[in-house]
Simulated scan of single mutants.
Amino acid sequence: MAVSGGPDSLALLLLAHAACGADRIAAATIDHGLRPESAAEADFVAGLCAELGVAHTTIRVEVDEGNLQANARSARYLALGQWHDEARVSAVMTAHHADDQAETLLMRLNRGSGVSGLAGIRSTAEIPGWGGTLFRPLLRWRKTELEAIVAGAGIEPVRDPSNTDEQFDRARVRRFLEEQDWIDPAMLAASAEHLEDAWRAIEWFAAEDWETHVVPDSDQQGRGFRYYANVPRAVAIETIGRIITELGGTASRGEAARAFDRLWQGENASLAGVLAVPGTERLEGTGITMRVWRFAPEPPRSST
């Protein structure tokens, strides 16, 4: 599990220790080196783990310049992925909780995110940029509950000043939620959980759509696909994205959505080096006419 020394991750450590025992868990602390105190904080976690009999590893990473929080997150998950493989743990656990989930949902609502984004922090997922299982068992717990566990154990946790630094969007959203007595973060987190269920349903139907409605295009010598588009827009967007990937490109969901809209209106769509052409096809033996969209690498542009 990832343990930074903050109250959330310390509560995760204590809960896992109580539920599983010391021999079945291990902890890793990522030292980003962004604050002078970070090395001492990692040593603090190492000492606590030694008292509990839990195996512990400190991993020091370098964070690229630019978007500090995003780059730190990427470096952290890559380090945890490598540790996951080297330590041969079955899953990496993080201490994301209901308040984190509520903040994430509000931030993504404000950005106009689709169902995938509004599903928020997934309860289970792949370790970003690596693979392997990422498990977040505390998404139904409130932050106050986790802090009470740590306080009850007589432990003074680490306090990261970036959590209250309002140059970061999350800190501003956090303060906003704290000031609202009519918003229940636990209910926002429950809504995100329902949206996660909806998103997993879309993923399932998109996998079925790929298997049943996408075929190699014989007219393109195996370098293209025919897509018999007969599903709701949210599912078709996922299928379009997968077709683009199979043809060697990369398209965001927003780009795939715009391609869907053009194709639905009977217009060609071009994205990530792939040309999609709308049409219809009469199915043999049934007499049914279906919408069919053809995807193939774009032809080279003329230099003249």
Rank of each mutant, 00 (worst) to 15 (best):
S9F: 11
D219W: 05
D181L: 12
V150M: 05
P185M: 07
I244S: 08
L52T: 03
E86V: 09
T239M: 07
L146C: 03
D64I: 00
I243A: 05
H17G: 00
L78M: 11
L275Y: 09
T304N: 12
R122F: 05
L106P: 11
T286D: 04
W199N: 08
E179D: 04
S303K: 12
G114R: 04
E238Y: 08
A27L: 00
R282L: 15
A19K: 13
V292L: 02
R226M: 10
A171N: 01
N230I: 08
R291K: 14
T58D: 06
Q180T: 06
S252I: 07
E193T: 12
A87D: 01
G266S: 01
D169N: 04
R159Y: 10
R60Q: 11
L263C: 06
Q220A: 15
P137I: 14
L34C: 03
Q69I: 13
A11L: 04
G222S: 05
G6V: 13
H56P: 08
P216E: 09
M290L: 14
P137D: 08
R233K: 12
G112L: 07
L68G: 02
D219K: 15
G241R: 15
W204V: 01
R122W: 09
A257M: 13
F44R: 14
P300W: 04
A276I: 10
L275D: 11
S9V: 06
N71H: 15
R223V: 03
W141P: 02
E238F: 11
G287P: 12
A79C: 08
V45S: 01
I237E: 05
D197M: 12
F205R: 05
P128V: 07
D99Y: 05
G5E: 02
I237P: 04
G5T: 01
C20M: 15
V115H: 04
V54E: 01
H96M: 00
A75S: 06
A189V: 10
T250N: 07
T57P: 01
A125L: 07
A28T: 06
R233D: 08
G279S: 07
L195H: 02
Q101W: 00
V215D: 09
E37N: 03
D31P: 00
R294K: 12
I243G: 04
H84G: 00
A272L: 09
F225R: 14
T304D: 14
